[in-house]
Amino acid sequence: MTDHKTGTREEWLAARLELLEAEKALTRRSDELARQRQELPWVRIDKQYRFETDDGTASLADLFRGRSQLLIYHFMFAPEYAAGCPSCSAIADGFDRTVVHLANHDVTLCAVSRAPLAKLQAYKQRMGWSFPWASSFDSDFNYDFHTAHTKEEWDSGAVEYNFRRTDFRPPAGHENPMLAEFASSVGTDWETYRREGPGVSAFALEDGVVYHTYSAYERGVDGLWGMYQWLDRAPLGRNETGLWFRRHDEYDSQ
């Protein structure tokens, strides 16, 4: 017998209609936030970044692939990693079927990571993905957009992430087993793992000039997790205890 509140269909409908009003309010608020994102000032990018792609060396403008808008997912995959971040991998599982729709709406979606291209290509093949993925190895790109952090930042306890300074170092003697599990999942330690960060950045290309228009980190990328949008509508919600998800080829059964 469930210990959750139960009721009649009439009681459910009354509660559901009340919730519907709250959902509509949230939708309207979300529309307003989207409008505010689009009204952010554009910042001209004059720095020349170079990337390695399946098609050869590319500039930031080249990543647009002839379109006027570019969305970059900052995928956590440092040169020291043996595999891509499991969280980023769960998010990226939804990219392939989205890329074609965005491409036909004048938007290119591309992942960018610091690992060498050969590493990205091997992992991409393992995961069965086909979306564009560029390597920014030996480039300042991830550092400039605050999704990679130097050892000096880490040691100072003042990592620039999510528009503020953060200390990601676990307190001495209070190492978190879940943090260790995340790091182990990419074959490294916590410091090396967390000197990368997830994020999304948007760019516009107009008259040959690239502009940075938007970036988001932490819960700002929450909406990109397709599985979480489903779980938020499931009876038990996210119902998380520890690191419950895996790369899609690591589950015992599918």
Score class of each variant (00 low, 15 high):
Glu11Leu: 08
Tyr49Pro: 06
Pro177Lys: 15
Arg169Trp: 01
Gly242Phe: 08
Pro132Asn: 13
Cys110Leu: 12
Asp54Ser: 14
Glu11Gln: 14
Lys124Tyr: 03
Phe75Trp: 04
Ala204Tyr: 04
Gly7Lys: 05
Met127Ile: 01
Arg28Pro: 00
Ala204Cys: 08
Tyr193Val: 05
Gly223Glu: 01
Arg65Trp: 01
Gly128Asp: 09
Trp42Ile: 07
Leu236Val: 07
Glu181Asn: 13
Pro170Gly: 04
Leu13Lys: 11
Tyr251Asn: 07
Ala122Ile: 05
Ala183Trp: 02
Arg44Gly: 04
Met76Ser: 10
Arg126Asp: 09
Asp55Thr: 14
Arg65Gln: 12
Tyr217Ser: 00
Thr108Gln: 15
Gly237Glu: 01
Glu39Gly: 09
Lys47Phe: 06
Asp222Gln: 14
Leu71Arg: 12
Leu71Glu: 01
Met227Gly: 10
Leu26Asn: 06
Arg238Cys: 11
Ala172His: 12
Gln69His: 15
Ala22Thr: 08
Ser156Cys: 11
Thr57Phe: 02
Thr150Tyr: 06
Thr188Leu: 11
Asp46Ser: 15
Ser215Cys: 13
Arg165Pro: 00
Asp155Trp: 04
Gly197Ser: 06
Ala134Met: 06
Arg28Trp: 05
Arg50Asn: 05
Glu160Cys: 09
Ser185Arg: 11
Phe95Cys: 01
His4Met: 14
Leu71Val: 05
Gly128Ala: 14
Gln121His: 03
Trp230Asn: 06
Pro235Phe: 01
Tyr49Gln: 12
Gly226Thr: 02
Ala172Arg: 15
Ser139Tyr: 00
Lys124His: 09
Asp144Asn: 10
Ser139Phe: 02
Pro116Asn: 10
His149Leu: 10
Phe95Ser: 04
Gly128Ser: 13
Ala234His: 04
Met178Ala: 11
Thr98Trp: 11
His74Gln: 12
Gly66Ala: 10
Thr2Ser: 15
Gln48Leu: 12
Asp144Gln: 08
Leu70Glu: 03
Leu17Ile: 10
Glu191Thr: 05
Tyr161His: 03
Tyr143Lys: 07
Leu205Arg: 05
